[in-house]
């Protein structure tokens, strides 16, 4: 079955512990749902919002990324689905959508034999 990466971008911080609680519970439920339906490949990892960028022929190291908060990747998960439309359909339940963030769905590139 083809595999896909979900890249989680943006999303606002909860405004109270009560809200954090609700966000947490929704994520747990969502991840559980993916796993129970056989879609989970790797839960993935959360990423710090900032780090370093190494670039150019002179190999300069700068702070970054300087993308807007709504575009910064906050983490990723690997899943499998029949095709990209199913993968996108599954992503519709991601709790990040309720908090102004978005999920980027990217097929893992397959080596065709």
């Amino acid at each position: 079955m083809p595999e896909f990466a979900y890249l989680y971008r943006g999303g606002t911080r909860p405004e109270s512990p009560q809200q954090a609680q609700q966000v947490m519970q929704k994520w747990i439920a969502w991840m559980k749902d993916l796993a129970e339906h056989g879609h989970m490949v790797d839960r993935g990892q959360p990423l710090e919002r900032s780090g370093k960028i190494v670039q150019g022929a002179n190999k300069s190291v700068i702070d970054g990324p300087f993308a807007e908060a709504k575009d910064v990747v906050g983490g990723f998960t690997l899943i499998k689905a029949n095709d990209i439309s199913e993968a996108a359909e599954l992503a519709k339940n991601c709790p990040i959508l309720e908090r102004g963030g978005h999920v980027e769905v990217r097929p893992i590139m397959q080596m065709s034999m």
Partner: peptide, 10 residues
């Protein structure tokens, strides 16, 4: 904690 747990689980 929330950032980590929501991806990694509790």
């Amino acid at each position: 904690a929330l950032e980590v747990w929501k991806v990694r689980g509790l």
